[in-house]
Structure formats: C-alpha cells, structure tokens
Amino acid sequence: MLFPFYNLWDNYWRQYRINAETAIQTALQRVPGQVIRVEVDTEDGLLVYEIYIRTTSGIIYEVTIDANTGEILEVDRQND
C-alpha cells in the first residue's frame, strides 16, 4: 500500500465520527421541526454538524453538534 496513513485516518473517522443522520436525530430531539439545512464545519478546531431546523411556529434554530461525540454544543435562534 502506497499511503497507509490514509487508511489509518479513514478507520479513525469511521470509528469516532457520528454520521449526519445521527446528528439530525439528536438535533430533532432538542428542537422538533423540519430540517432545512445540514452543514459540516469546524469550530475552535472541532468538526461539527450545523443543523438548521424550522419549528412549526416558523422560528429557525441552528443546532451545533460535535461530530466526534454527538454532544449538542449550542442551540441558537436565528434572526429573521
């Protein structure tokens, strides 16, 4: 194998990173509604999912989830 470290990193991410579906389900447990956008980003060196949810009352929230642990880091109400 020419690049064994790629395989090592691939296995790391498979073992420790949660997938987008898990992040979405976690966010919906905190803020019920319709998911309108999902982004992967970094914040303070952490890989995070940013999930935007519209509630039944029309308010949009951004739920930030640690992509490694699945922990909800922040819930922000978006300004109109």
Rank of each mutant, 00 (worst) to 15 (best):
T64L: 15
N19E: 04
R17C: 00
V31S: 03
A23E: 02
Q29D: 00
A27C: 15
Y52L: 12
G33V: 09
Y12M: 09
G58F: 05
G33D: 02
I60V: 09
R17A: 03
T22H: 04
E39W: 10
D41F: 13
V38I: 14
T22D: 03
L2Y: 11
N79Y: 06
Q15R: 13
F3Q: 10
I51Q: 06
W9E: 13
I18G: 04
Y6L: 09
N7M: 10
R14E: 00
V31E: 04
F5N: 08
I60D: 04
T69A: 05
I51W: 09
Y12V: 15
T55I: 11
I65K: 10
I18P: 14
D41H: 11
I59C: 03
T55R: 15
V63Y: 10
L73Q: 14
S57C: 00
G45E: 01
R14A: 02
L8M: 13
I36G: 06
A67W: 12
I59P: 01
N79E: 08
I24K: 13
E50F: 05
T56Q: 07
P32D: 00
E50L: 10
T42Y: 06
N7G: 08
Y61E: 01
Y61Q: 03
E74W: 07
L73Y: 15
A20H: 04
N68Q: 14
Q34D: 12
Y12N: 04
I60H: 09
Y16D: 02
L47W: 09
D66Y: 07
G70W: 15
W13V: 10
D80Q: 05
Y61L: 03
N79F: 07
V40I: 15
M1I: 13
P32H: 00
G58C: 06
E74H: 10
F3Y: 11
R77K: 05
P32A: 01
W9L: 15
M1T: 12
W13I: 13
R17G: 00
Y16P: 00
A20G: 04
A27E: 09
F3H: 10
E39K: 09
I53H: 00
D76N: 14
E21A: 09
Q25G: 07
V38H: 13
R77Y: 01
I59D: 07
P4R: 12
G58I: 08
Q15N: 13
V75F: 14
V75P: 08
V31L: 09
E43A: 10
I18A: 03
D10Y: 12
V75R: 15
A23K: 09
Y12C: 07
T55C: 06
F3N: 12
N68V: 10
N11I: 11
Y61T: 02
P32V: 02
A23G: 07
N68I: 13
I18C: 07
V31N: 02
Y49Q: 05
V35M: 08
V35L: 11
V35N: 05
Y6Q: 08
E39Q: 08
R54Y: 04
I24D: 00
N19G: 09
